[in-house]
Design a protein around this nucleic acid. Structure first.
Lengths: 187, 187
DNA sequence: GCAAATTAATGATTTATTCAAG
DNA sequence: CTTGAATAAATCATTAATTTGC
């Protein structure tokens, strides 16, 4: 998919002139943006101040100002924030060994008692609210459910399947679904 | 706080149903549903497949099948979808509108901080040569172009040439410290 | 000390989502 | 149902660090 790269900068010419901290030495390698320490410093500061996804205008301004420290383009600013944001998140996930993603996703369970009208069928029997238990994280490999699990799932899905005729009952606005044949592997 | 090492289910009493499959193994938190990774995976997959508001029947089937992976009730499935749907939407909104907390602090923006950058300006992809079309997108959705396009925000445009319209050695020995004001409030 | 070789960072692209408008 | 907007995740690719043999 490199078609669009037609007019592309010829590689080579690694001038590495970028010692110290400025890049504008006029060496000008066209390879890719190489931020100066000042630029990085400012960008980092902005990020720390809360900026995450700067608007076009902001990018423009930032770029313009940072250009004082050396060559830079708006796209560089855009990419910098994208990457930085993503990598910070990634880093943080790493630290927590993650797997907490789904946990946090359901923390709000208590707050949502607004299911008032949605009482549907399952009477909320003693629903011990709160009692947030931050269990230590899983200890098994993160990707433990690649195929094995899917196999397993299929296996049991089959078992359960016959008991279900799955009548599309009312209240089914978006029933463009397979009969809940939870076998993802068959999708 | 948790750690009632001596099995402590506050209310419920059901012992962690999380059978051997996983989920912390010793979870035993009876407080609330703690989905196993397999459960989350399946639910997410269903969601991704388009399911948003499962019907009662669907919920039951899902619940039944997922119970293989651990304790789960229909209400959990119901809530999961409700929450997941809401949070996805919320996330989308958040990001779209801004996602940055700085707005709340300083909304000294010129005009719009909502545009969130429409086309993000550089999407420039030019296919040179014969049949290829030069798909140059707009560079700036908004007016403003005081300075000529020194930057122009062309994507791959920056030829390898010395694009440094900025030698850095600006004739201004005194200007060691450019008057940059990159505080968010000034963007 | 110095480059070639190797590794770690991180800039730049591509891909896959989600929601919502048409 | 289809398509557009707008990312975030995943990935690719190049540059800077560093290691290593002389």
């Amino acid at each position: 998919m490199e078609e669009g790269l037609s007019g592309f900068c010829i590689k080579g010419s690694h001038v590495r002139g970028n010692n110290g901290n400025n890049n504008g030495g006029s060496g000008t390698k066209c390879g890719r943006w190489n931020p100066t320490t000042e630029q990085v410093k400012v960008l980092t500061e902005l990020f720390r101040s809360g900026l995450r996804t700067p608007s076009t205008d902001q990018i423009q301004k930032i770029s313009t100002q940072l250009s004082f420290y050396g060559k830079i383009e708006s796209k560089n600013v855009f990419y910098w924030f994208q990457n930085h944001k993503a990598r910070e998140r990634q880093k943080r996930r790493k630290v927590s060994i993650d797997e907490n993603d789904f946990i946090s996703r359901d923390n709000i369970f208590n707050n949502n008692n607004k299911i008032s009208s949605s009482k549907r069928f399952f009477e909320v029997k003693e629903y011990q609210s709160d009692q947030r238990v931050i269990e230590t994280l899983q200890l098994f490999p993160l990707n433990s459910f690649d195929e094995n699990e899917q196999e397993k799932l299929r296996f049991h899905a089959n078992e359960c399947r016959e008991t279900s005729s799955f009548p599309y009952t009312i209240n089914n606005p978006e029933m463009d679904h397979p009969p809940l044949d939870l076998r993802l592997s068959s999708l």
